[in-house]
């Protein structure tokens, strides 16, 4: 690979030019109104945090088992609705989620969080044990199975939960905003909190994979499943745990997103798409890739809304597509992807 073919070189130069243009344009806009730049940048970062939490579960399951869980978005959505129902029951419907009026105690948020994540993790586990386990290695069939499950979940959610999008209430003990001491910005605390949780999740997953025996088995399993089994390790147990954790992370994302943005019936498609894009950009199975992918998606999303010329903000989806094409043109397996 020492001599770069001219075609590849041309593609790289082109991409370099595009990136340079974007950088100059954003830089110009930032100099023009630094305050907006900082706030929108934070919007993008916090959004990226949420995307990372969701996508890390998706990529973990794929990396180990080669299962593309098309129901990942459905699990995200389910967790949001479970938590919302539970919170309403706990607070007797008193916990308005609104700014400054939250009456939810810390438990009124934590308990729904834990229960919803566990419930969704369990659903994921059952899904894996009942439907996916005996189809191991048949990637397409497994993907189709999870698509079927996502159709059923979407329809049942429609049948059983209310009509308008709602928010989970953040605990009232959380501050509403934090002051940044920069351009006088006070920024929503919960969004920062989501970013911190995302970083913590990332570090925990990293530590788990690099430092624990479980992680060692997972890494070995990614490279050579048969060998791991031959060594007498119960790979099925590892698979089941990985699926549980992956689904749990979808649930965690659902509760965080349900508090930060909203619990909505369209969430399944949206977050499946986001997870797909994040891992296509970052490379399936790679934690670092998921982080980079989430960052790229979150920032493009937030800045596209603001820095596209007025009247063209509705073209922002094309930016995401362009991002995808750009990455795939250079690296078909994503930035950190490795051949299976």
């Amino acid at each position: 690979m020492s001599a770069v073919p001219p075609r590849t070189l041309a593609v790289r130069v082109l991409i370099g030019l595009v990136l340079a243009f974007v950088a100059v344009y954003v830089g110009y806009k930032a100099a023009d109104d630094p305050r907006t730049f900082v706030v929108v940048g934070l919007n993008g970062l916090t959004l990226a945090g949420l995307y990372f939490v969701v996508a890390s579960g998706f990529t973990l399951i794929f990396g180990l088992m080669r299962v593309v869980n098309m129901a990942h978005g459905s699990l995200y959505m389910l967790a949001g609705f479970f938590a919302l129902e539970l919170q309403k029951n706990l607070t007797g419907g008193e916990a308005t989620s609104a700014f400054g009026t939250s009456k939810a105690g810390i438990g009124d948020w934590i308990i729904p969080l834990v229960v919803a994540c566990l419930a969704v993790g369990l659903i994921g586990l059952v899904m894996q044990q009942v439907f996916l386990r005996w189809n191991q290695g048949q990637e397409l069939r497994q993907a189709l199975i999870t698509i079927a499950i996502s159709i059923i979940i979407a329809d049942q959610v429609l049948a059983n939960f209310g009509g308008v999008a709602e928010n989970l209430a953040a605990p009232s003990s959380f501050p509403e905003t934090v002051s940044l001491r920069l351009y006088d910005i006070s920024y929503p605390f919960f969004r920062i909190f989501v970013l911190l949780v995302a970083i913590a999740v990332g570090l925990a997953l990293w530590a788990m994979i690099k430092r624990t025996r479980f992680g060692m088995i997972v890494r070995a399993g990614v490279d050579d499943r048969q060998m791991v089994s031959a060594l007498g390790i119960n790979i099925q147990l590892v698979f089941a745990s990985a699926f549980l954790i992956g689904a749990f992370l979808a649930g965690l994302g659902g509760v965080l997103g349900g508090t930060m943005i909203s619990v909505n019936k369209g969430n399944d498609t949206t977050y499946l798409l986001f997870s797909l894009i994040v891992v296509i950009i970052g490379g399936m199975g790679s934690l670092a890739g998921a982080a980079i992918g989430a960052l790229a998606l979150g920032l493009v999303d937030a800045f596209g809304d603001v820095y596209l010329p007025a009247g063209y903000t509705n073209y922002s989806v094309l930016l995401i597509f362009a991002l995808l094409v750009l990455v795939l043109a250079v690296r078909p397996l994503g930035l950190f992807g490795r051949p299976a």
């Binding site: 907006t36 706030v39 929108v40 919007n43 993008g44 959004l47 989620s97 009509g163 308008v164 999008a165 709602e166 928010n167 929503p188 969004r191 943005i261 909203s262 909505n264 019936k265 369209g266 949206t270 999303d301 937030a302 800045f303 809304d305 603001v306």
Partner: peptide
């Protein structure tokens, strides 16, 4: 669903704004 970047764009010095966000986005 994440309106934050659009809210950032509402000038601070207008008298007010008319909100026509749909049912799924209001809250």
């Amino acid at each position: 669903e994440d309106y934050s970047s659009f809210i950032t764009q509402i000038p601070e010095d207008v008298d007010g704004f008319f909100m026509g966000v749909g049912g799924t986005g209001t809250v």
